[in-house]
Every structure is written in C-alpha cells, then in structure tokens.
C-alpha cells in the first residue's frame, strides 16, 4: 500500500509502451483500415456504375432486337412478294410452253393425218384400180385409166 520506487518504474514502462504503440502499432493498423475503407467505397461505386452500365446495355439490346425484328419483317415481306412474282411468272411461262407444245402436237397430228389420208387414198385407189382391173380386165387399159385416177387423187 505504500508508494515507492515502483511508481518510477511504472512511469518509465508507461512511456515506453505508449511510444511503442504510437510508433509501431497505431499507424499501420489505422492505415490498413483506411485503405480497406477506401477500397470498399471504390468497389461499391464500381458496382453502382456497373449496374447502370448493365441497364444501358439492356436498353440498347432491346432497341437492337426491335430493329432487327423490323428488318426481318421487311425482308420476309419482300421475299414473299418476290416468291409470288416468281410463281406468277412461272405460271405464265408454263402456259406459254404448254400452248407451244400443244400447237406442235396439233401440227404433228395434222401432218400425220394428212399423210395417212394420202396413203389411204393411194391404197384405196390401188384397191379400186385392182378391183376395176378385175372387173374391166378385158376392156380397160390399165395405163390409160391410171392416168385418169391419178388425176382424181390429185383433185382430192
């Protein structure tokens, strides 16, 4: 309970510890804490900015999408139109072609009909002549009457 030299020792120790704390403990710890505070503040600010950027990007993306849709609609429209045109053209061409083929075929048919008629007439003529030859064998001269029949064929 008495005051003695201990108090001097304690004062010296007190000064030493305070000096140590002031020199080696307080500044680094506080510096680290302040640095961290700054870092966190920066991080939060960056996050805010990023959120804002994201919003802008989303808006831009929506705009671009709408634009693209519009463009696509225009393209589809024009493609449809083009397709219709092509089909119409093809129809017209087909009709023309069909007409042409039909004409050709008709011409062929006409030509063959004429040929067949000619042959038929020739054979009928020959048959008539041979019949007539048999009927008129005695009096009718084949060469003389053939000229008359040929005349007849030509008149047909």
């Amino acid at each position: 309970m008495n005051i003695n030299l201990t108090i001097i020792g304690q004062i010296v120790a007190f000064i030493a510890f305070v000096a140590f704390c002031m020199r080696y403990v307080w500044p680094p710890i506080l510096a680290a804490m302040e640095e961290r505070q700054q870092k966190i503040a920066d991080g939060l600010a960056a996050a805010d900015r990023a959120g804002h950027d994201l919003e802008l990007a989303q808006k831009a993306a929506v705009d671009r999408l709408a634009e693209a849709k519009k463009e696509a609609a225009v393209i589809v429209d024009s493609a449809n139109k083009r397709a219709t045109t092509l089909v119409d053209e093809a129809k017209v061409a087909a009709v023309v072609e069909a007409d042409r083929v039909k004409e050709l075929a008709t011409a062929e048919v006409e030509r063959e009909k004429a040929q067949a008629k000619e042959q038929l007439l020739a054979q009928v003529s020959a048959l008539a002549i041979s019949g007539a030859e048999k009927v008129l064998a005695a009096e009718i001269d084949a060469d003389k009457h053939a000229a008359i029949l040929e005349q007849l064929v030509k008149e047909q």
Binding site: C21, P28, I29, A31, E35, Q38
Partner: peptide, 17 residues
C-alpha cells in the same frame, strides 16, 4: 504491457486492405 505490444504489433504487421 509486452503482451499488449506483441499482440498488437503482430496484428499491425498483418493488417492489410
């Protein structure tokens, strides 16, 4: 006092952001 100084110095060395 030495324990205090040692403990806090240990932390001061390791304190970072």
């Amino acid at each position: 006092g030495v324990i205090f100084c040692a403990l806090f110095r240990w932390v001061a060395v390791r304190a970072s952001a």
